[in-house]
Amino acid sequence: MRKVKFVPTGEGPEDLKGSLLVTGFMGFGLVGFIATDFLLNKLKPKKIGYFVTKYLPEQVSYSEERGLELPFELYYKEVDGKKILILMNRWIPVTVERFAYADYVVKWAKKRGVEAIYAFGGLDNSYKEEPKERLRWVKTRHYDGPLPEGKPMTGGLKVIGPLALLLASAEVRGVKALAILPFCESMRQDPRASAVGLQEFARIVDLSLDVSELVERAESIESELERLRKMLESGATGRESHYM
């Protein structure tokens, strides 16, 4: 078989011209994964197909709402008059076909008249130049739409992984693409960073989207981490007192 192919469910619209394709990967802070997963749960889109690779990752999941969930699925819904495509990457393609996967998605999108690709990724908090910075962004030269409120990613910083390959393919193939990169906690999942990215995406495409659930999830995680930190500090203090 070809390295990558698209298998439709037969439930999607025939005309996808003018759609916005939204996606992300399991990168730093799981920002892209959390953002796209949130959109699935919030917007309740219809599953319209699968991207199948030659070396498909050996994992599936199941939900009562969506049934069997494959590694790379495509969803669709019209929201606020906009055609939204959500590419859900539940895993990362194997190394030997990562570019083939990213390039196929870009070619598929261009062939069907997708207006632009929006992708989410995470950028480690340590690269902030100012404490109040929330995100950076990267775009292809073909993207001429509104930009996030923040600086472009410059100064030697690099996008890596499948997201980089997606941007590279879009640049070469003349596709409008914008990567939104909120600063995040790179060593753990960071729903707050995903919320920042989604808020900017909603603003620049004029979409109504409430991300308060992600903020609440972030606060819960941060509260638990703070509780564990205090518990560990208390334990250390107790041991030191015992040996004084």
Results as ranks from 00 to 15, higher is better:
Gly49His: 03
Gly49Met: 02
Phe51Asn: 01
Val52Ser: 00
Val52Met: 05
Val52Asn: 01
Lys54Cys: 01
Tyr55Thr: 00
Tyr55Gln: 03
Tyr55Phe: 06
Leu56Met: 12
Glu58Lys: 06
Gln59Glu: 07
Val60Pro: 02
Ser61Thr: 09
Arg66Lys: 04
Arg66Glu: 12
Leu68Pro: 02
Glu69Thr: 00
Leu70Thr: 12
Phe72Asp: 04
Phe72Arg: 07
Glu73Val: 03
Leu74Asn: 02
Tyr76Thr: 01
Glu78Ser: 08
Glu78Met: 09
Val79Met: 12
Val79Gly: 02
Gly81Trp: 15
Lys82Asn: 10
Lys83Glu: 13
Ile86Gly: 07
Leu87Tyr: 09
Leu87His: 14
Asn89Glu: 14
Trp91Asn: 10
Ile92His: 10
Pro93Thr: 05
Val94Gln: 14
Thr95Leu: 11
Glu97Cys: 08
Glu97Thr: 02
Phe99Ala: 02
Phe99Glu: 14
Phe99Met: 11
Tyr101Arg: 08
Tyr101Val: 03
Tyr104Phe: 14
Tyr104Met: 01
Val106Thr: 15
Lys107Ser: 13
Lys107Gly: 06
Trp108Arg: 03
Lys111Leu: 10
Lys111Thr: 09
Gly113Arg: 05
Gly113Met: 08
Phe120Pro: 05
Gly121Asn: 08
Asp124Asn: 15
Asp124Glu: 14
Asp124Pro: 10
Asn125His: 14
Ser126Glu: 13
Lys128Val: 10
Glu129Ser: 11
Glu129Arg: 15
Glu130His: 14
Glu133Trp: 04
Leu135Gln: 08
Leu135Tyr: 07
Lys139Val: 10
Thr140Phe: 12
Arg141Pro: 15
His142Gly: 10
Tyr143Glu: 04
Tyr143Leu: 12
Asp144Lys: 08
Gly145Met: 09
Pro148Cys: 05
Pro148Leu: 03
Pro148Asp: 05
Pro148Arg: 13
Glu149Phe: 07
Glu149Ser: 05
Gly150Trp: 10
Lys151Ile: 02
Met153His: 05
Met153Thr: 03
Thr154Pro: 01
Thr154Gln: 04
Gly155Lys: 10
Gly155Tyr: 06
